[in-house]
């Protein structure tokens, strides 16, 4: 994926997450589009640092515009992205089980950091409630990552043919 494409997709995710994502929300949870985009982008782009920084900036902007607290979400995206960048250095995303397992793992890391960050700044969510909704968040993100995987695979095969 090219950096320009990622920027355009991040802008789309920025607007869609607080609006259209609500179509499939349950208990106030919807897919984390920016997180999903970042995992896919980090695995398929060379400028991982730039991608992580850019998507974390979009997450920060999203918090400023729509959230009660600015900071925890962007920090969580940044750390989850750094983790994905580290994983991308040592592993290849081509194997679907790894790709999906990493999505679940990264979602858990992201949600945990977000929950802890929100508790620090004054959020009011219990840990048991966070744990209860964690599988739902993971399922949502896996559902988003699955078509993304086949799209990335198709792009990679196309590039190899050239």
């Amino acid at each position: 994926m090219k950096t320009g494409h990622i920027a355009a997709l991040a802008a789309a995710a920025f607007f869609m997450e607080p609006s259209v994502a609500g179509l499939i929300s349950f208990s106030g949870k919807a897919p984390e589009l920016l997180l999903c985009l970042m995992i896919a982008a980090v695995f398929s782009c060379r400028d991982t640092g730039l991608v992580v920084g850019m998507i974390a900036a979009f997450a920060a902007l999203q918090e400023i515009c729509f959230s009660l607290y600015a900071g925890p979400g962007a920090f969580a995206v940044f750390l989850a992205g750094t983790l994905a960048a580290a994983a991308a250095r040592y592993c290849t995303w081509d194997r679907l089980p790894f790709y999906l397992a990493f999505t679940v793992f990264d979602t858990a890391v992201y949600e945990l950091i977000l929950w802890a960050g929100l508790r620090i700044v004054g959020g009011y969510v219990s840990f048991t409630y966070f744990l209860k909704l964690l599988p739902l968040s993971a399922c949502y993100n896996v559902a988003i990552m699955l078509p993304m995987y086949y799209w990335l695979l198709k792009q990679k095969q196309g590039a190899e043919e050239i």
Partner: peptide, 11 residues
């Protein structure tokens, strides 16, 4: 707009 990421119910 609705915030869906923080379990918060903020909009």
């Amino acid at each position: 707009a609705m915030e869906y990421s923080g379990w918060q119910g903020a909009f």
